[in-house]
């Protein structure tokens, strides 16, 4: 069960949008016994006797008190996985600050944006020069 969740974390936690790979050596690892998980389904008989669509998961990280909620999907199991991924992100930001995966990615994307802008400026300059040279203006 546990290793499945961890495997899922790897996939859900760091969506790969670009070639950029963040350094994740500092990312906190969740310990299942340090988590308190709550479900809307809560008390009552459960199982076949209940047909509910609500499957919100609330996950609390006991050592820090950080809480996340997930009702993003219609499957409880998927929500449990996603809640863990969210919690890792949140703890990572909290503990690692500027070294968190999110901060690293943001820096990368900002830089990429600036690089792109610089390239665009350069290109339009070259174009203007070329037009001038060829007497196209």
């Amino acid at each position: 069960m546990l290793h499945r969740f961890k495997a899922a974390l790897k996939i859900v936690g760091y969506s790969i949008r670009t070639k950029f790979t963040a350094d994740s050596s500092k990312v906190p690892v969740l310990v299942e016994t340090e988590l308190k998980e709550q479900f809307v389904r809560g008390s009552g008989p459960g199982g076949q006797a209940v047909n509910k669509t609500a499957n919100c998961v609330t996950l609390k990280h006991l050592p820090t008190g950080v809480v996340v909620k997930c009702h993003e999907t219609r499957s409880l199991e998927e929500n449990r996985k996603k809640a863990r991924a969210l919690l890792v992100d949140k703890l990572d930001n909290l503990v690692n600050g500027i070294d968190s995966v999110e901060a690293q990615r943001k820096r990368y994307e900002d830089k990429k944006g600036k690089d792109k802008k610089r390239k665009q400026v350069k290109l339009s300059l070259l174009k203007a020069e070329w037009k001038k040279r060829e007497n196209l203006v």
Partner: peptide, 25 residues
């Protein structure tokens, strides 16, 4: 949805419950 899968549902066939997702594990 059941685990990662979206399944067609039609009455009167039993609608899967979330507990059963753990049985699969």
């Amino acid at each position: 949805d059941f685990r990662g899968l979206t399944l067609k549902m039609s009455p009167p066939v039993f609608i899967p419950r979330p507990e059963t997702e753990m049985l699969v594990d």
